[in-house]
Simulated scan of single mutants.
Amino acid sequence: MPELPRHLWYLITSLGGAGVTLPLAIAIALWLALGYTWRMALGWLVLLGAAIGVVTVTKLAFLGWGVGVRELDFTGLSGHAALSTAVYPVALFVMLLPARPKVRAVGVALGLATGIAVGLSRVVVEAHSPSEAITGCFVGAVTALMFVRWAWDAEPGRLSATPVTVSLLTLMVALHGVRLPTQRWVTHIALKVSGHERPYIRARWKAGLYDQPNAVPLSRKQNAASAPPVSDERDV
Results as ranks from 00 to 15, higher is better:
H128L: 04
H128W: 08
H128I: 03
S129C: 06
S129E: 03
P130V: 06
P130N: 11
P130Q: 11
P130K: 03
S131R: 07
E132Y: 15
E132T: 12
A133N: 07
A133I: 06
I134Q: 04
T135E: 08
T135H: 02
T135P: 00
G136C: 04
G136S: 06
C137A: 15
C137T: 15
C137Q: 05
F138A: 14
F138C: 13
F138R: 01
F138I: 15
F138D: 05
V139S: 08
V139T: 14
V139W: 03
V139I: 14
G140F: 12
G140Q: 02
G140E: 08
A141P: 00
A141K: 00
V142D: 01
V142K: 03
V142W: 10
T143H: 08
T143G: 07
T143M: 09
A144M: 07
A144H: 04
A144V: 08
A144G: 03
L145M: 09
L145G: 08
M146D: 01
F147R: 01
F147Q: 01
F147E: 01
F147N: 02
F147K: 09
V148W: 06
V148N: 05
R149K: 06
W150T: 08
W150H: 13
W150V: 05
W152Y: 09
W152D: 00
W152A: 02
W152V: 00
W152T: 03
W152H: 12
D153T: 11
D153G: 03
A154R: 00
A154Q: 13
E155C: 01
E155G: 07
E155P: 06
P156E: 02
P156T: 07
P156D: 01
P156W: 13
P156S: 04
G157A: 09
G157W: 12
R158P: 08
R158K: 10
R158F: 09
R158V: 00
R158Q: 14
R158E: 08
L159E: 11
S160M: 13
S160N: 14
S160H: 15
